[in-house]
Amino acid sequence: MTITAETGPPTRAAAPVGRLLAAEVRWVFRRPRTLVTLGLFALIPVLIAIGVVVADRDGGGGLIGAVAGNGLVLPIAALTVALALLLPLAVAMAAADALAGEAANGTLRGLLLAPVSRLRLVGVKAFGVLVVAAAVALAIAVVGVLAGMVVVGSADGGMVTLSGTTLGLAAGLARVALVTVWVVGQLAAVGAVALAVSSLTEHPLVVLASVLGGLIAFGVLSAIPALDWLQPWLLTSGWSAGADALRDPITLDAMGSSTLRALCYAAIGVGFTLWRMQRRDA
């Protein structure tokens, strides 16, 4: 599969990658499902904000409790809450549509016949899933910051950490950005594994069910004390690390190791997808 320069069209054996990526992103965001998902995710921080204001500090402990009167914590709390189930499902849905859904529609065939090489197809699809992951995480973060500042309000315009110190607005926003990037990394791992499942089936629901089942299985495994040794292998065991961004001084160990773990999961997922797509009938 040689990629020739964009000059003489008749000699070109593949469409420019940039054009493929742009078409994929366009397709992703024209899908009504994606837009509805984005809207629903933007609602999460708003609902939490309203809940916190209504409950007025009786919201109990946990990160949600820390949001009261401390709006900049809202995006981080909302991301952490959504990371447990909703965000992975959104990414799994994107991955399900990316290969299984296209196969079911018969559109995968069209792309392969264009032709888009199978390697590029995996690359383009992985990129599309990553874009969805970033979009949903950003939706929560941005709406979270706005809802936090407007609905909840913040102490002196800053962020009160779990350690009892107060950070300025810029430092607080930097913490939010850090958590958002970290969440996208975790979602990339989920997306890559979901893409691998997606390359095995023509039924998008199988992908959703697998990711949901995997999350439940990981949750069960991590709850069994005898299987403590398994913890460091489980993607989900690092998912509480987002709270570390609310500590002062900040500790990056847990976010760092969970990001490394996520990268490994992503490599496994994309590697398997590559291997599988070279063989797949379309």
């Binding site: 090489s117 990268l263 398997f272």
Partner: peptide, 25 residues
């Protein structure tokens, strides 16, 4: 395309990536 030499190469690279990921994990 389905079984091209490039395809085989990339299938192997995919396998390699997956194994590297598992080892890294």
């Amino acid at each position: 395309m389905a079984v091209g030499t490039a395809g085989r190469l990339w299938a192997r690279i995919g396998t390699g990536m997956a194994i590297a990921g598992a080892v890294g994990l």
